[in-house]
Amino acid sequence: MRTTIPIIVAFLSGLVLALAPFFREDNWFGGLKQELTEWLIIVGGFTLLLGVVSITRVNWTAVTRRKEGWGYKVLTLVAVFAMAIPSVLSPEWSTLFGRADGSIYDWLFVNLQSPMMATMFATLAFYIASAAYRAFRARSVEATILLITATLVMLWRVPMGEWILERLPGDIPYLLNTYIMGGANMAVQRGIIIGAALGAASMSLRIILGIERTYMGKG
């Protein structure tokens, strides 16, 4: 019973949504699809609460047990609630509430969260440089081809590099765009995309039919 009902629900909803593109929308089947879609959005919204409960429980336990680094956990909890509580309160009570311009949420988002996220993303430049230095070795013929191609594409994607390439014989930027990006790259990407899409479709079918149940805790 614990798994039968979820499997039936997964089968029915999966079947409706999988068949929906083959039915017109202005009839009962289209209505059913739209109804399920709206349910999905509503149910999904509620699941966000699960995250708040988990993060609070895990961090609160660490604080009460004075685990190593518990001070940081206090900061995490303060940050979660400082951002969440004012954002869900009604802006009619105060302009500091809600998520509009001038609210606490907006101030924290614009001045703290957004720059921190951009900073983390920017660290990728450092990691990529370090990974390229260690991993890009001409160990074999294939690795050497990869290395030369990557170098040319990197040069082509920036103005200073283009300036260098234009001084070399042959129209290298055109060749790169046509044969590397629009040729070899595209062929490989298509192969991976088609394979991955079939894999995803097969997995979806296994889930809809209840063959694959690992995701619900059943082997």
Partner: peptide, 11 residues
């Protein structure tokens, strides 16, 4: 994500 949390815990 919270839903992944619930599923992964169960699994």
């Amino acid at each position: 994500y919270p839903l992944v949390l619930a599923a992964a815990q169960e699994v």
